[in-house]
C-alpha cells in the first residue's frame, strides 16, 4: 500500500486534498472538507459524509453545484457527530442544511445525533437516507438496503437545485425523489484490503465473483464462477429492474470499485446499454468511472435512476468539484 502508517491514512489524504484543491477549505484537525466560499448566502447547504475508502465520494464532491461540506470518517468507519455539527455550522447560511446519509447503522446513528446537536445550535436540518442496493432483499431481517451509487445522483441533483436558491423543503423533496427512484447492484472480482488489516478483508478466490457485493465488501446474494461482462450486466440489471420498473428514461452510472480499469468499465457500459436497449428502456444520460469505490476492490456497480425532465435539467446543471465537473 502507498501509505505512511495505517493510523495516518485519512489525515494524510486530507493534507493532499488541501494541497491540490485551494478552492476547498480542508480542516485536517476537525476532519471536514468545505467549500472555501461557504456559507453561500441565500443557499441551502448540503452536507454528507461517511467512512473513508470510497473516494472521490464524499470529499471529492464538494464544490459549486454539489456538496457544501463532507465529513470523512476513518476507513470504512462512519464519522463522529462533532464533524457534522462543525460542518453544518460552517456552511449554514440561515437557509438550513440537508444531510445526505447512506444507510449504514453507524452513519445513520452519527448523523441522527449530529442533527439533534446542530438543531440545538439553531441550524435547521433535514435528512435524506440513501438506500439503493437491491442485493439486500431481506430488509425486515437486516439493517436494510445499503447506500451506494445513488448517493452521487442525490448529491448532484439536490446540489443543483440548492444552487438555484430553492428552499430546504424542496431540496429535501427532490433528494428523496432521487433516492427513492434509484437502484444499484454491484459485483466484486477481488476483495479490498484495509490499511488497518494490511490484507484482504474477505476471501474471494481468483476465478470467482461476489454477486451483489457491498461497498465495504459485505457479502452479496451469491458467489459465482467468473462470468463475462455481458453475463454480469444481464444479472445486475435483472436484479435492478425486478425492483425499479422504469416507465421512461433513466440516468445510468457505471461505477468502478477502485481497481478495475476504465477500458473494462466502458466495455461493461456497452453491455449495460445493450441490456437496457433489449428491455426498451431509454438511457438519457450515462456516467462511467470510479466514483463510489471500495479501496482497491476490483469490480463494478450499476445504478439506475428514473429521470423526468426536471431531474435531467438538474443533472445537466453546472458542477465544479474535484470528482465531478461540467458546464462550469
Amino acid at each position: 500500500m502507498l501509505i505512511n502508517v495505517p493510523e495516518s491514512v485519512v489525515p494524510d489524504a486530507l493534507r493532499g486534498m488541501a494541497a491540490a484543491h485551494p478552492e476547498l477549505t480542508v480542516d485536517v484537525e476537525r476532519r471536514v472538507v468545505l467549500r472555501r466560499d461557504a456559507p453561500v448566502a441565500g443557499k441551502v447547504a448540503l452536507v454528507s459524509g461517511g467512512g473513508s475508502g470510497h473516494e472521490p465520494l464524499h470529499g471529492g464532491f464538494v464544490g459549486p453545484g454539489m456538496l457544501d461540506a463532507a465529513c470523512p470518517g476513518e476507513i470504512f468507519t462512519s464519522p463522529v457527530p462533532d464533524q457534522m455539527v462543525s460542518a453544518a455550522a460552517a456552511v449554514d447560511s440561515g437557509e438550513g442544511v440537508l444531510f445526505v446519509v447512506k444507510n449504514y447503522t453507524g452513519d445513520v446513528l452519527n448523523f441522527d445525533m449530529a442533527a439533534e446537536l446542530a438543531e440545538d445550535e439553531g441550524v435547521r436540518v433535514a435528512k435524506v437516507l440513501v438506500e439503493d442496493d437491491v442485493a439486500v432483499t431481506d430488509s425486515t431481517f437486516t439493517a436494510g438496503r445499503r447506500g451506494t451509487g445513488a448517493t452521487l445522483f442525490v448529491e448532484k441533483i439536490a446540489g443543483a437545485l440548492a444552487a438555484e436558491g430553492a428552499p430546504l423543503e424542496r431540496v429535501e423533496a427532490v433528494a428523496r425523489q432521487v433516492a427513492g427512484d434509484s437502484r444499484s447492484f454491484g459485483v466484486a472480482l477481488s476483495p479490498c484490503s484495509t490499511p488497518d488489516k494490511g490484507g484482504p478483508t474477505f476471501e474471494l478466490p481468483p476465478g470467482e465473483l461476489e454477486m451483489g457485493v457491498g461497498i465495504h465488501g459485505e457479502p452479496g446474494r451469491e458467489r459465482r464462477a467468473m462470468m463475462t461482462s455481458g453475463e454480469i450486466a444481464d444479472a445486475a440489471l435483472d436484479a435492478i429492474l425486478d425492483d425499479l420498473r422504469p416507465d421512461g428514461p433513466v440516468l445510468a452510472l457505471v461505477n468502478g470499485m477502485g481497481s478495475t480499469p476504465l477500458v473494462e468499465l466502458y466495455g461493461f457500459c456497452a453491455e449495460v446499454h445493450r441490456v437496457l436497449g433489449e428491455r426498451r428502456i431509454p438511457v438519457a444520460r450515462t456516467l462511467v468511472g470510479n466514483y463510489v469505490t471500495s479501496l482497491d476492490m476490483a469490480g463494478a456497480s450499476v445504478t439506475l435512476c428514473r429521470a423526468d425532465e426536471e431531474l435531467l435539467r438538474l443533472w445537466d446543471a453546472p458542477v465544479r468539484t474535484p470528482g465531478l465537473r461540467w458546464g462550469a
Partner: peptide, 12 residues
C-alpha cells in the same frame, strides 16, 4: 465515546 469512536458503537 460519541466524539471519538464513530461507527455504530460510538453512538450506542
Amino acid at each position: 465515546l460519541v466524539s471519538t469512536v464513530g461507527g455504530a458503537s460510538g453512538p450506542l
